[in-house]
Design a binder for these strands. Structure first.
Lengths: 211, 211
DNA sequence: AGCGTTAACTTAACATCGTTAACTTAGTGA
DNA sequence: TCACTAAGTTAACGATGTTAAGTTAACGCT
């Protein structure tokens, strides 16, 4: 049986080689900017060899996105230790924006394009709902804690709605930065400044006013 | 001279036919989902005929985007009459979101993709800086008025930064809706509700607290 | 030891894409 | 009448994602 194991390991290794090459290319060139032939050439395989390991270009890319989702979740680990839920929400927001700044192409694929994921793959089921892995669930969890702590305004009790609103706010900052930062007709303020003000303002607007 | 005029008009007419066919296709299929050949077939021309009127696919699409920018600006005309700058900002935000809901593919191209526009075409120069046409400038104008009226918190005096923050907030709502609304792992609240809360919260967080 | 099977991988090819070059062709102005 | 202009066509190029048919080497079984 050790033989079959080795073969399996070898296959996984070339699979990993494909993923590495694809990651490097996608990161700098974006989805449309890289072809299967380029990926193949980079690891000295024929273009069609990729199809042994991945059904199509989409699946190859999705695999990378999956890995990066985990990386995104990892960034939240730091925030997880904060006991103040509001502080935690803030930290999650900044981490999210920083993630988008560091991996714009991955961010683009994850959050700025419609992908016919149709959800509910077995892998997704593992991820979704687990606060340590699922960014949205983690945010929602913190929001719920904040609600329970009574820090949000009285009429705001829907954790789902609050989470979606907070998410949209930080997503707006980073996605607009990715898509339009090179447009010279806007005198862009530094990203940090915009992130700071957005999080500050949206939270100030959602929380009870300090008396 | 009437002859040359007629020829010119005829050319403009087929140009318009191309634009109409392209608009219809792009609107439903998105940028990558439509080919020059499809556009051509729809108006019974050969694919290359399009290149008589447009340099390439990009220019064809950009032309549509230009027209839709004007349409977007037109939506703001209603808001222009409001004397209260804060109310005007709110109205602009809702109009912006409504525009994205109505023309998601155009919105995607306008605000969710990097386009190497590099700005400063002659047409762009007409648009930029004119509050009636340029959405961002219009927003900034209203923000400046609001600053002058002393409704924002004392430390917030940068109209550019405030505009960018407000823009990002509404952009976050509509762009996330476009990209991720079909993802079933989020129990999405109605778009109207999210838009309402976002604008309400961000403004509440930026304005002076009512005493 | 020999042989059929499996499966990773290659070669060749297909349909489609955006785009260019070379042509047709109809109408214009002199 | 004739050269010219310019809208439009046909044919083709290189590149794309992907499939079908082969190759080949290692494995498991008798």
């Amino acid at each position: 049986m050790t033989v079959k194991e080795r073969r399996e390991r070898e296959k996984l290794e070339t699979r990993e080689k494909i993923l590495d090459a694809a990651r490097e290319l996608f990161l700098t060139e974006g989805y449309d900017g890289v072809s299967m032939r380029q990926v193949a050439e980079r690891i000295d395989y024929s273009p069609t060899a990729i199809y042994v390991h991945f059904a199509d270009k989409d699946e190859l890319f999705r695999e990378l996105v999956h890995a990066d989702f985990a990386r995104l979740a990892g960034v939240f680990q730091d925030a997880a230790n904060l006991s103040d839920p509001v502080e935690r929400i803030k930290r999650v927001g900044f981490a999210y924006i920083e993630f988008g700044r560091r991996y714009p192409n991955h961010y683009k694929l994850m959050f700025m394009t419609e992908c016919p994921l149709t959800g509910l793959d077995e892998v997704d089921c593992e991820l979704k709902g687990n606060p340590e892995l699922d960014a949205y669930a983690f945010l929602k969890h913190s929001v719920q804690q904040a609600i329970d702590a009574g820090v949000f305004r009285e009429e705001l009790r829907d954790a789902e709605l609050l989470s979606q609103t907070l998410w949209a706010a930080v997503h707006g900052v980073i996605s607009l930065n990715i898509a339009k930062h090179s447009d010279a007709w806007v005198a862009w303020r530094p990203l940090e400044q915009r992130a700071q003000l957005t999080l500050d303002a949206i939270l100030r607007g959602l929380l009870k006013e300090k008396s």
